[in-house]
C-alpha cells in the first residue's frame, strides 16, 4: 500500500500510449458522443469494430480491455431481460402475466447492453494507456479555459495535486488504524443495520481525525509561507499538440459527427 496506486495503467509503447493525455481525453469524449447517438444495430456493429481496432492499436490484451465489462454479465442479463419483456407491450410475441416480450424490446435491450459495453471498453483503453498523473494533468489543462469565466483554475489545480500527494499517505495511515483497532478487538461488521453503522466508527473516526490533522498542519505551514489561495499560482506550460494528436482528434470528431448526423 506504500506505492501510489496506478489503477489500470500498463506502460507500453503504442500509437495510443504516445498520444498526449489531453488529446486522448478529448478523443474519448468525442467517441462517447458518437456512441450515445447511435440508434441502429449496424451502427453498433461499426462501433464494435472500431473498439477492436483501438484495443489492437493500444496493444492491450482483449482480456484487460474487456475485463470490467465481462464482470457485469449479470447486470447485462437483467437489462436485456427487462427491455425484452417490458419495452413495448403493444406488439408482443406472446403475452403472459406482466411479461410481454417483443422484437422491439430485444433490439432495444441489445442496444443498451452494447452501449454500456462499448463505453466500458473504450474508457478502459484510455485508462490502460494513460498514467494517472498524465491524466490529471490533462484534466487540468482542459479545465484551464474556465479561468476566463471566473473559476479559480489555479486553486483547483493546487487542490488536485495536494489530493494526489495525500493518497499514499492516507492509504498507509488507514491501514495502520485498521490494524490497531483489529488488535483491540474491533469487528467492523454486524448483521443489524443500526450496529453496522456503529461497527465502522472505530475505523472511520480515527481516519478522519488523522486526515484532518494533516490538513491542519499543511494549511498552517502554507499560510506561514504566505500562500493565500488566490489565483497567483504557477502558469503551467503545456506541450503543444503533435501532428498525431491533431490527426486523432480529427478522426474522432469525424466519426462522432457522422453518427450524430445519421441520427
Amino acid at each position: 500500500m506504500r506505492q501510489l496506486p496506478v489503477g489500470l495503467y500498463q506502460p507500453a509503447d503504442s500509437v495510443i500510449h504516445r498520444l498526449s493525455g489531453s488529446a486522448k481525453l478529448l478523443c474519448m469524449l468525442l467517441l462517447l458522443i458518437g456512441v450515445v447517438n447511435t440508434t441502429t444495430l449496424p451502427g453498433y456493429g461499426i462501433w464494435v469494430l472500431l473498439t477492436a481496432l483501438l484495443i489492437r492499436l493500444a496493444r492491450i490484451s482483449p482480456g484487460t480491455a474487456l475485463g470490467s465489462a465481462v464482470r457485469l454479465k449479470w447486470f447485462f442479463g437483467v437489462i436485456l431481460f427487462m427491455n425484452l419483456c417490458f419495452y413495448q407491450p403493444e406488439d408482443p410475441w406472446v403475452r403472459w402475466w406482466i411479461f410481454s416480450p417483443s422484437y422491439a424490446g430485444l433490439i432495444q435491450g441489445i442496444q443498451v447492453v452494447a452501449r454500456v459495453f462499448l463505453l466500458l471498453a473504450m474508457s478502459n483503453v484510455l485508462m490502460v494507456s494513460t498514467a494517472p498523473l498524465v491524466m490529471t494533468d490533462a484534466m487540468e489543462r482542459l479545465l484551464s479555459p474556465l479561468r476566463l469565466i471566473g473559476v479559480p483554475a489555479g486553486l483547483i489545480a493546487m487542490i488536485l495535486s495536494v489530493a494526489i500527494q495525500f493518497i499514499p499517505t492516507l492509504f498507509e495511515e488507514t491501514d495502520n488504524i485498521r490494524k490497531a483497532q483489529t488488535a483491540r478487538g474491533a469487528r467492523f461488521d454486524s448483521p443489524r443495520l443500526w450496529d453496522k453503522a456503529k461497527a465502522v466508527l472505530p475505523l472511520l473516526v480515527p481516519v478522519f481525525l488523522a486526515a484532518f490533522k494533516r490538513a491542519d498542519e499543511l494549511s498552517m505551514a502554507m499560510e506561514a509561507r504566505g500562500y493565500r489561495g488566490d489565483t497567483q499560482s504557477r502558469k503551467k506550460k503545456y506541450p503543444p499538440f503533435q501532428t498525431a494528436d491533431w490527426l486523432a482528434l480529427l478522426l474522432c470528431a469525424a466519426v462522432a459527427a457522422a453518427f450524430v448526423m445519421i441520427r
Binding site: E173, N176, I177, K179, A180, Q181, R184, P206
Partner: peptide, 9 residues
C-alpha cells in the same frame, strides 16, 4: 502500536 493515540475515537 507506534503512535497509539490515533486509535482514540
Amino acid at each position: 502500536f507506534q503512535f497509539p493515540e490515533i486509535q482514540l475515537f
